[in-house]
């Protein structure tokens, strides 16, 4: 349902007062995502994982340059087509909790998300949406600053999903969540995929993400190191073809928590 073809993202920056240069930050990337699939996207911070999510939703900074194609069910994702898809067919769970409006009660923000998707719901609908992520109704009347980091993250998940999107892109949805809540969120993604939707799961936490994922795309320094089946991430990782993927796997606290040399 999602096809990313020869995608590159760069930035136009000033060098000196007047001269500008274009700097490549991501790509070229080729990634396909089918219905019913959870694709985990892992890699070092700064490798461009969030850039990919922002490029898909057309929310890159104004000086960004994008080339290549991104197709959603055959529709090219670009300025003209995105407004009809964003928040309706495609839901984004942003990484930073600063994406919540600090001056608006959480319930209203969740209601807006539903209305933007063309599916306004009443208060009981909002409470039900919070219930999916084990949040109680008192969150509706709270301001974002009163929520803990984990609660805010689950609220953003509810906002992304309340419109019933076919594709969910989640940028670090479980960082800051305790193990129970992380498992809850990941289990929810799995069920979304099993219903025929697709999930792009951007994360650092390989150990938690592997059991719910079908494939794992490894991003390194802005290019795709490879896509491995999730099953290859097990034991000491010797089933992994990429030395970098192996090093990532072995550095997990649950595994070796060690460093090993990776050839560049």
């Amino acid at each position: 349902m999602l096809a990313i073809e020869a995608l590159t993202v760069g930035f136009r920056r000033y060098r000196g007062l007047l001269a500008q240069v274009d700097v490549r930050a991501l790509g070229p990337l080729e990634i396909g995502l089918a219905r019913g699939e959870v694709l985990a996207l892992v890699g070092a911070s700064g490798a461009g994982k969030s850039l990919l999510a922002h490029a898909l939703f057309g929310v890159l900074p104004p000086n960004a340059l994008v080339s290549g194609r991104m197709l959603f069910d055959g529709i090219a994702l670009e300025a003209q087509t995105l407004p009809a898809l964003r928040g309706r067919k495609m839901g984004l769970v942003p990484q930073s909790i600063s994406h919540l409006d600090p001056l608006v009660r959480c319930g209203r923000q969740l209601g807006w998300a539903a209305r933007r998707a063309g599916r306004p719901v009443d208060r009981s609908g909002l409470e039900a949406a919070l219930g999916w992520f084990d949040l109680d109704a008192s969150v509706l009347d709270a301001f974002p600053h009163a929520l803990s980091g984990g609660m805010a993250r689950r609220l953003m998940l509810a906002m992304a999903i309340i419109g019933g999107p076919d594709l969910v892109v989640a940028d670090e949805p479980i960082s800051g969540l305790d193990a129970d809540n992380a498992a809850l969120v990941l289990g929810y993604f799995r069920r979304l995929a099993d219903e025929g939707r697709a999930v792009l799961l951007i994360t650092h936490d390989l150990v938690q993400a592997i059991p719910v994922s079908d494939r794992v795309a490894i991003l390194r320094d802005g290019h795709l190191e490879g896509i491995a089946p999730a099953a290859a991430f097990s034991g000491d990782g010797s089933a992994l073809a990429s030395p970098y993927a192996r090093a990532l796997w072995r550095a997990m606290p649950e595994n070796g928590f060690g460093l090993e040399p990776v050839d560049a």
Binding site: A183, L184, Q208, E254
Partner: peptide, 22 residues
């Protein structure tokens, strides 16, 4: 014991994605 359990148990969460609009 907690740390090594690692993998989340997906079945038992009280979630009903079926409640979602299709």
């Amino acid at each position: 014991a907690i740390g090594n359990a690692g993998s989340p148990q997906c079945g038992k969460w009280p979630l009903e994605p079926a409640n979602l609009p299709a």
